[in-house]
């Protein structure tokens, strides 16, 4: 079959990216290869590990289980949009302070899922955090520090919200 390519526009991290893709290309690959967003980590490519998690209209999805052509018309957020090295997002800052990462492979997926959770539920219980993050595998930390990090992130966000109120 001849290689069919289509030109699409993806709304990624607040701006439009025009890319030419084959319909079979996974969103994870297109974000990495065509958009250069290497924070989209690819672990298993079958929906098990959660490393490739991105936000689609604010909700977590596995970017290895979508074709890039399907993301047209949706707002995508990758970890690159969260903070910069000098100005971390409160969730990233909390992961740092609470030692919520070691090798960092699972971290973008963890951080984005945690961000989406806190946007929905600013004060999640520890149980909710554990259940929510059950879809993201970490082979290093043993999870406890990640749970601590999300609890700390909730505090940091509440303090910030108070400060700006």
């Amino acid at each position: 079959m001849a290689e069919e390519r289509v030109e699409i526009t993806l709304a990624v991290n607040g701006h439009d990216e025009r890319v030419t893709v084959e319909p079979r290309w996974l969103l994870s690959d297109v974000l990495r290869r065509e958009c250069g967003l290497l924070g989209v980590h690819v672990g298993c490519e079958h929906g098990v590990c959660g490393a490739c998690t991105v936000l689609l209209d604010g909700e977590p999805v596995r970017s290895c289980l979508m074709f890039a052509v399907q993301a047209v018309g949706h707002q995508l957020t990758t970890v690159e949009a969260l903070g910069t090295a000098d100005n971390l997002d409160p969730v990233q800052q909390a992961f740092w302070e609470a030692h919520g990462l070691q090798c960092g492979f699972c971290t973008p997926g963890m951080v984005l899922t945690a961000r989406a959770l806190l946007d929905r539920d600013p004060h999640p219980s520890e149980e909710t955090i554990r259940e929510t993050l059950a879809g993201n595998l970490c082979r290093c930390t043993g999870y406890q520090f990640i749970v601590d990090a999300v609890l700390l992130a909730a505090e940091k966000r509440a303090a910030l919200a108070e400060g700006s109120a």
Partner: peptide, 9 residues
Amino acid sequence: IGHWGIRTR
């Protein structure tokens, strides 16, 4: 069903 990132799709 599944995990959050599965249920959303």
